[in-house]
Design a protein around this nucleic acid. Structure first.
Lengths: 374, 374
DNA sequence: TCACAATTCGGAAGCGCTTCCGAAGCGTAT
DNA sequence: ATACGCTTCGGAAGCGCTTCCGAATTGTGA
């Protein structure tokens, strides 16, 4: 069976150009050992005939595949999509193809690492935001290709990620500086991703920041939920229920999506944001801007681009010794309308133990805090 | 250069098993012309040696690539991510690999269709939610492989999509039934996707629904913006500014993200949702549930799965004549908290021409309309 | 003018696999 | 016992390309 209907081969081009297969090949690649004249002739013919090499043949004959595998948990989630976006952009412009492997649930995962479907198919693999354990690392090694981690730290591979601790501090310190003392935290772990370390960096930041401010962490204010806004909403309700007399005046969510969930619950309880409680997330999800959410910005797309460059470096014929092997992307606090100063009475609370927000039920709506709105 | 470091070839397996290359190959595939005994032996050896075929060699020798190209505009957007998710899931379980091509802006597009980077690399291509024009269709045809369209209607290829007109009617009729007469519409077109027809189906529905209700469409209430929540927010402000004495009591947004943008503007203007104005979107984006947005649900993931099945059908050795060539996925109205009955005075308006919402500036916040909250 | 080097090119092997076709090996009917 | 058919297997060609190595051509210095 021919390579593909309608495709012609290099030998066709060679014949047409009146040169040998060898020369044609060289004209198309090497460009050494071929005179400029013949090279031009071959190229012209190739173009005229609309010739396209067969990547499989190239590969078989000893070349690289020019393919890289992308292993990503949930392509439909903004974070991963954005990451893939960045990776695709630079890899595509370097003429690499992307093989997408979605490895979500535990079965997927099991299957992926045992079958190793990308084996013999790619020059490198980038693992997006997801921790690989020892056993999985060994399987991956079997592929015999370079590996880079994007969106997560890794001791074993070159990686790009943010400093989760720093991001957490930015968020929590912002709350602290606004006078908040009772700060809740909603952390999340992906149920499919046991032991994702990123979260713990953010949690650590929370603990440290409070401690540094002389505040004891109250475990009634902390929840760790499965990923998802709805779960965060529940967690928020939980926290509120657990602290009827000492509700938090602020909440630090590990991600914007969680923050949005928390906000829903707060609103439904008649609490105003930010007058009654401030909320801060992490990510700067596009919807954060839309919902006026204060957050910690990270450029996921750029991280993707960097990851791709890490791949390219690793694949370079003469590995660049100076090429970075680990880069941490910057994060910055973006203050929007969901955070504000702590309610006055909350500062001098601790004595009165009745409903801290007796006036809320009938309170007036938030004054539009955005005079700049067009 | 060997196929890949550490990989052994079929001939290694054959030698080890004491059979010929031919037999080994047959044992691994055909399973015909080989006795059960030898087949088992070969399979056992292959397993023991951890043998993996070289897909490139297979391909070269005449097989299929078992790869399909995915052409998608913006992988980071929920809709596309979800679609890819669905496609990946079924294609992966059919042992196909996915080549991802992100074709966003016009340059990308130009480049993709002229270079045709997927040429000679795949057995089929699925074009996600994006209209290909005549010239592009011709280029695509050059690839000589099957093509299916996902998330958009196409006269030329098998496709799966929703009935945009129907979805639009569901949304607008819902508004109408709630007594709204002044209904704004925020449509969006992707600046990178000239002439996306989906939108027009939704717009048509708007016009038809109003007409059927005996309402003339007021162009002051309609805006067509570039894709994005922020743009929708601006459009909403525009509409409000343009109709100081006859503000809409409802808005129909072509997508949830647009709806969220509109909501932001409404809230900042001190308007309550749904007491003062109702908002309905389309998609049932995960955040719609979180933000209590009434919307028209579509299962994008399922559409992806269906698209993948269309691909599989097209690739089947004996094409199934009964296989569907076009399927439209169902849509259903999901009523949440962002829509409600039209304000009383709006129904008998038309006479008084002063500010229709004089009391809004100091109005009370929305009563939590969700007693079911956990 | 001749020897020799550099340049430009072609022959052929081989990458890992599938598959056509023919060769054994075996059983059964005559 | 001979002939024939079926099953099981191997040889070898070929998929489209790269690359080693040697041949032909051209140019250079003496």
């Amino acid at each position: 069976m021919p390579d593909q209907p309608g495709s012609l081969s290099l030998s066709d081009v060679a014949r047409e150009a009146g040169v040998s297969l060898t020369t044609a090949s060289r004209a198309l690649n090497d460009s050494y050992g071929v005179s400029a004249a013949t090279r031009e002739k071959v190229l012209a013919i190739a173009r005229r005939l609309d010739y396209v090499v067969s990547p499989d043949a190239v590969r078989l004959a000893g070349g690289r595949t020019r393919r890289v595998a992308l292993v990503v948990p949930h392509i439909e989630r903004w974070f991963f999509g954005e990451m893939v976006n960045g990776i695709e952009t630079v890899l595509a412009s370097a003429n690499f193809d992307l093989l997408l492997y979605q490895v979500g649930g535990p079965e997927d995962r099991q299957d992926f690492f045992t079958r190793l479907p990308a084996r013999r198919k790619v020059d490198a693999v980038v693992v997006v935001a997801f921790p690989v354990d020892q056993r999985e690392r060994e399987r991956l090694a079997l592929m015999g290709v370079g590996i880079v981690a994007a969106g997560g730290q890794s001791a074993d591979y070159p990686y790009v990620c943010i400093d989760d601790y720093h991001a957490g501090r930015l968020a929590v310190d912002h709350l602290l500086e606004s006078g908040h003392r009772r700060i809740a935290m909603i952390a999340a772990h992906d149920p499919d991703q046991p032991g994702w370390p990123a979260r713990s960096g953010r949690s650590e930041a929370y603990v440290d920041a409070l401690t540094a401010a002389g505040i004891a962490v109250d475990h009634c204010l902390v929840r760790d939920v499965d990923w998802g806004g709805l779960n965060a909403a529940e967690a928020m309700a939980d926290i509120l229920d657990a602290t009827p007399e000492s509700a938090p005046t602020a909440v630090f969510a590990h991600s914007d999506e969680l923050a949005l969930g928390a906000i829903r619950t707060l609103r439904r309880r008649g609490l105003r944001i930010p007058e009654d409680v401030s909320v801060v997330g992490i990510d700067d999800h596009p919807l954060a801007a839309l919902t006026d959410l204060t957050t910690v910005h990270q450029s996921v797309r750029e991280q993707g681009e960097i990851a791709a460059r890490l791949v390219l470096d690793a694949l370079a014929p003469i590995p660049d010794g100076d090429a970075p092997t680990a880069v941490t992307a910057p994060t910055t606090l973006v203050v929007r309308g969901s955070t504000g100063p702590a309610p006055d009475h909350a500062r001098s609370l601790a004595a009165s133990s009745d409903d801290p927000h007796p006036e809320l039920a009938g309170s007036r709506p938030a004054v539009p805090a955005h005079p700049q709105e067009r």
